[in-house]
């Protein structure tokens, strides 16, 4: 259990993977939300009745950060960190690290682009209230790939810690 890869133990690699997932998802969400929130604030400053219509758009890029957090928690659960029984070989730890990468990378980019898509979609809401439902669809399409990343990460974690 004391073996290392690049000077890091199995648990170190697992922690690093969990951190990457949380950081990647968090950065993606932060940038995505900033983008759409600016546009939403502009819309609401001119027409406050549109607040409820643009809020779901503004909240949508926040899910990537949640996926990052979920990944981090799952890493801690699967590796026994919460239970205090964490014991990983360096190879197992490296597998956990790689398992975290889909969420870390995909949530970073999908959060940013979901925000950009939501800015465009918010223009639809600004013009016509009745298009609020349709406007949600386009950023939701970007969300699909963040969900796929989470599914892939969970499956890989299950295999890595089996």
């Amino acid at each position: 259990m004391n073996e290392t890869i690049l000077g890091m133990t199995g648990l170190d690699w697992a922690y690093l993977g969990a951190a990457f997932a949380a950081i990647g998802g968090g950065i993606g969400s932060a940038i995505g939300i900033t983008s759409i929130s600016n546009a939403a604030a502009g819309i609401v400053s001119e027409d406050s009745e549109k607040f409820g219509k643009v809020l779901p758009l503004a909240a949508m890029p926040g899910t990537q950060g949640i996926y990052g957090l979920v990944t981090m928690i799952l890493v801690f659960v699967f590796t026994g960190v919460f239970a205090g029984t964490a014991e990983l070989t360096a190879a197992e730890g490296l597998r956990v690290f790689f398992s975290c990468l889909p969420v870390a990378v995909l949530c970073l980019f999908s959060g940013i682009y979901q925000g950009a898509t939501a800015v465009g979609a918010s223009g639809m809401v600004a013009r016509r209230d009745e298009d609020a439902g349709k406007a949600l669809i386009f950023p939701a399409l970007v969300e699909t790939y963040a969900v796929f990343a989470l599914v892939v990460t969970i499956l890989m974690l299950l295999y890595a810690t089996a």
Binding site: N38, A39, A40, A41, G42, I43, K50, S122, G123, R127
Partner: peptide, 16 residues
């Protein structure tokens, strides 16, 4: 998106 988002949001309403 960050720099002009607010102004573009306003424009989308003002255009109407």
């Amino acid at each position: 998106a960050i720099r002009f988002g607010y102004a573009v949001g306003r424009v989308r309403v003002l255009e109407t």
